[in-house]
Design a protein around this nucleic acid. Structure first.
Length: 266
DNA sequence: TACATATGATCAT
DNA sequence: TGATCCTATGTAA
């Protein structure tokens, strides 16, 4: 679930449902009880997403949430909300609407310095209007790591995860183990623009679709079936949708990467 | 019931 | 590079 599109989608939905209102905050699980008590009942001025980080700007303090690999929100009209499970680290509620968070890697209050430090270590986020791709280009010039590894580094580009790495490199025809600094500027520009486009579609729809709908017999992104959404991610040994060659996978930067050996030549 | 795996990141070695 | 943390899910035993 959680790459940058998920975070920005939560930010938008939570801003819409809870923004500008007094929010009840608690921690049914108990592990965030102290922090929750400090912001409980204060007004949620805004919710912002930056890369894979969510910031809830309460009058009484800033709440930082990072979903990690497992974190997720469930939301419901308050009247029909299910009882919070034993793993519900954080619950946000108004009279109308409730969100339950489980499994986050981070759920904590940040002071202004900590918030600045957090944002300072992130690269530009393609989903943010203020993103400066030049910073990402310069960061890539400084690395000798492969591009597939650099793309997962949040200090290079914020918000990219394992699915978008595999899919954007496939669409760019770039092999993940090529050196980051060997990318041509035109290749980088196209990659950035494609990441922004893919993330935007995913933020709106709530799912990652990186195939051309026509390639899988669909008329629109919405009509692409769930089992045909991506080109290479988690499709090891299956035929490439473009050329039919078996999709390859290997470990890169501690994660599994997927690529077509033919469409992404060395 | 247990195990493997996962769209993440950090810390130790 | 490996261990570790967080939770849910699907498959094997």
């Amino acid at each position: 679930m959680p790459e940058g599109h998920t975070i920005h989608r939560y930010a938008r939905l939570h801003r819409q449902a809870l923004g500008g209102r007094q929010v009840r905050v608690d921690s049914p699980q108990g592990r965030f009880a102290g922090g929750a008590a400090r912001i409980d009942g204060s007004v949620l001025a805004d919710v912002t997403g930056y890369g894979k980080h969510l910031l809830y700007h309460f009058d009484a303090g800033t709440l930082h949430v990072h979903l990690g690999l497992f974190g997720r929100f469930r939301s419901f009209p308050t009247a029909s909300a299910e009882p919070p499970g034993a793993a519900t680290r954080l619950r946000l509620r108004t009279d109308d609407w409730a969100a339950h968070l489980s499994g986050p890697a981070a759920c904590e209050l940040l002071d202004a310095d900590a918030e600045d430090a957090l944002l300072a270590r992130l690269g530009p986020d393609p989903l943010r209007p203020d993103a400066d791709p030049q910073r990402a280009w310069e960061a890539l010039q400084r690395r000798r790591a492969p591009i597939g590894q650099a793309l997962l580094d949040q200090a290079v580009i914020a918000g990219i995860g394992n699915v978008f790495r595999a899919e954007a490199l496939f669409r760019a025809g770039v092999r993940p183990d090529r050196s980051a600094r060997d990318l041509a500027r035109e290749e980088f520009d196209a990659l950035w623009a494609d990441l922004a486009a893919l993330l935007t579609v995913a933020e709106r729809s709530g799912r990652i679709v990186t195939v051309d709908p026509a390639d899988v017999g669909a008329d629109s992104v919405e009509e692409v079936p769930d089992d045909a959404r991506v080109n290479v991610y988690r499709r090891a040994d299956e035929p490439c949708r473009r050329c039919g060659a078996p999709v390859a996978s290997w470990r890169l930067g501690g994660r599994t990467v997927f690529a077509c050996p033919v469409c992404q030549p060395a």
